[in-house]
Design a protein around this nucleic acid. Structure first.
Lengths: 158, 158
DNA sequence: TTTTTTGCAAATCGTTTGCACGCTG
DNA sequence: CAGCGTGCAAACGATTTGCAAAAAA
């Protein structure tokens, strides 16, 4: 076993932010909340290490972390969502193939600027965005029904 | 009962597209599929009029319509989704408040151009996009913990 | 007639909630 | 000590799936 090392600067930053948030809302800093935050800070895949914390608590805490900006929750009206730690997240977006479902990441630094630009004339403080481009990937375009698909693409893109 | 009128031009366009798609995939044009397509074409809210078609069939057909481009399915890796008819859809995007969950629509004509631009150097044929901007709405910014929230926004937006 | 579809009901899966007990401030 | 938070198990709601009957090609 390794003696507990000093926490990396990022996680203590995150912890401080979370604590400040809880204080502002008069909520309590429990062992479970610390554990979940720690798991996120160390980028634990799917919170495996936090099996001792009940699922209900994980969800309740995730909601707090979302409100506090430490976790991003992506959804759109649906009851399902996709949680992702904000910390160290390269702001990337997705291209999703409608035919096979494959997801491609892409990075564009200018999208953050666009985001701020979009919000400049309205009272809305943007924290992060999520851009999904749906279409057809190379494999699916060259598939059997290529002709049909190309026609489809042409029609919609005009 | 009313004698069947000629279908409006849009729906017949959609119907043709769907038929071509089914033919290309050697699938059958059933009464249920027609009914669901018709409901979408007439912008029926939530397919109320299609109660006679089983839920399973609605979902199965929606998947076909998505592949064929007549319906947009918005999700992000999650198993839940948000279906929306492509037909006559103003290409709009969403700002979503993390605090209260309210959704604001916004329209930007230049986003379609951006979408094509993003895909120009890779083999991916974009059909449509979905941009979500998460942040805090006016009401929530002016709420009790304004100070904290502003700090948060400032931190993330840099 | 052959193959695809449908409807039903059961199975999933992520998420939420009510409640009694436990812990933080 | 007063609340807030937790675990559990049941409730939920959207979506999927297996299977036998029904419909399209």
């Amino acid at each position: 076993m390794i003696s507990t090392p000093a926490l990396p600067p990022e996680s203590s930053t995150e912890a401080k932010r979370f604590e400040a948030f809880l204080r502002a809302k008069k909520l309590k800093l429990t062992r479970e909340r610390k554990a979940i935050l720690a798991a996120i800070a160390r980028k634990a895949p799917h919170f495996d290490a936090e099996n001792r914390v009940s699922r209900a608590t994980v969800y309740r805490t995730l909601n707090l972390l979302v409100q506090c900006g430490l976790v991003q929750k992506n959804s759109l009206g649906s009851s399902h969502a996709c949680y992702e730690a904000s910390h160290g997240r390269e702001p990337h977006d997705h291209m999703i193939c409608l035919q096979c479902g494959k997801v491609f990441d892409f990075y564009r630094t200018d999208l953050a600027a666009l985001q701020n630009d979009l919000c400049q004339d309205r009272v809305f403080a943007p924290l992060y965005h999520n851009l999904q481009i749906f279409g057809l990937c190379a494999d699916c375009i060259t598939g059997a029904d290529e002709k049909f698909i190309r026609e489809q693409v042409a029609r919609i893109n005009t």
